[in-house]
Amino acid sequence: MKVVVIGGTGLIGSKVVAKLKEHGHEAVPAAPNTGVNTLTGEGLAEVLKDASVVVDVSNSPSFADDAVMEFFRTSTTNVLHAEADAGVSHHVALSIVGTDRLPENGYFRAKVAQEELIKASGIAYSIVHATQFFEFVTGIADSATEGDTVRVPDAKIQPMYSDDVATAVAGAAMDAPLDGVVEIAGPEAFSFDEFIRTGLAAGNDPRTVVVDQHAQYFGSELEENSLLPGPGAHLAETRFADWLAQRK
């Protein structure tokens, strides 16, 4: 089976390509550096020829509100139109747990718009909602840092390893379309401050982590469970402590 992975040279995409190949599928990475530009449509018709499934794990080069909305709307529209022309039978997209709970977050709004385009396309689909990745713990801390202090919300987070994300996305590509959403998450929920503090300590980062009920998460104030998956989520096996240990 030929599977085209949009964003297939990035963190998640490269892992998805490798996992699909391990299962004997023809997995083709599609990204600007492979000659495919979803914003202009360049290379899409060629790469989708004879493809059965498209996996979209692409991301916007800019996270500014207008730019990220333009990226996901334009890119997704172009990909879906090209899929219809090529006869692709299954569209798989990676999105985020909690997208519909934080409307003031520009990135989440853009992901909601992307999902709406997919659902309205007429192409069978599976949308995978993942929680935050372990790999982004320092980046999250950086976004919340004032001086030597990291101010984090009074909320919970249930992060996961990017390799487990890729396993779930590759599995969705190999399975029958859901025409719906599946949630995936790490095996443990943490208080936000515990997650950040543990991640920084593992890197000998001296910043102080404090809880601030008004601290924002990329522009959004969080409720306790805003970023947590529902009770039916599929939980990955890799624990945060084990991931930190293997990085040493």
Rank of each mutant, 00 (worst) to 15 (best):
Y107E: 04
E26I: 11
T167E: 15
S220P: 07
A170E: 03
A141S: 09
V88E: 15
V181S: 05
D154K: 13
L94F: 01
V137F: 14
A155I: 01
F63S: 10
K156L: 13
I127V: 13
R239N: 07
V211Y: 08
I127S: 07
S226Q: 08
D56E: 08
V181A: 04
I196W: 03
P231V: 04
P231A: 01
F108E: 12
N37R: 10
V128R: 12
E188W: 12
F190N: 10
E146M: 15
H81F: 10
Q114C: 01
F136D: 09
G199V: 01
P229K: 00
M69G: 11
A27M: 05
V68C: 14
K248I: 10
N59L: 01
F136K: 14
L94V: 03
Q216F: 03
P29L: 00
H90K: 03
K49F: 09
R247Y: 10
N33V: 11
G106K: 00
D212V: 07
A120M: 06
I196H: 05
S226N: 03
V165T: 14
L222A: 13
N37C: 07
S226A: 08
T74F: 00
E104I: 02
I12W: 00
T131G: 02
D163T: 10
E70P: 06
A245T: 09
H214P: 06
T167C: 10
H25M: 07
A45P: 10
F195Y: 15
P153G: 05
A93K: 13
T149F: 12
I118P: 00
A241H: 05
A141D: 05
F190M: 04
G180P: 01
I12M: 09
V17K: 14
L228I: 07
I12P: 03
F192P: 00
L235P: 13
E22I: 02
V211F: 13
A176Y: 02
H23Y: 11
A84S: 14
R247K: 14
V57H: 10
D242A: 11
V150Q: 02
V53N: 10
A130W: 00
A189M: 11
T208F: 10
K248Q: 15
T208E: 15
G13T: 02
L178K: 09
L200W: 05
G41M: 06
S191F: 05
G171E: 15
V55N: 08
A144L: 15
P231G: 06
L80A: 01
E22T: 12
L80S: 01
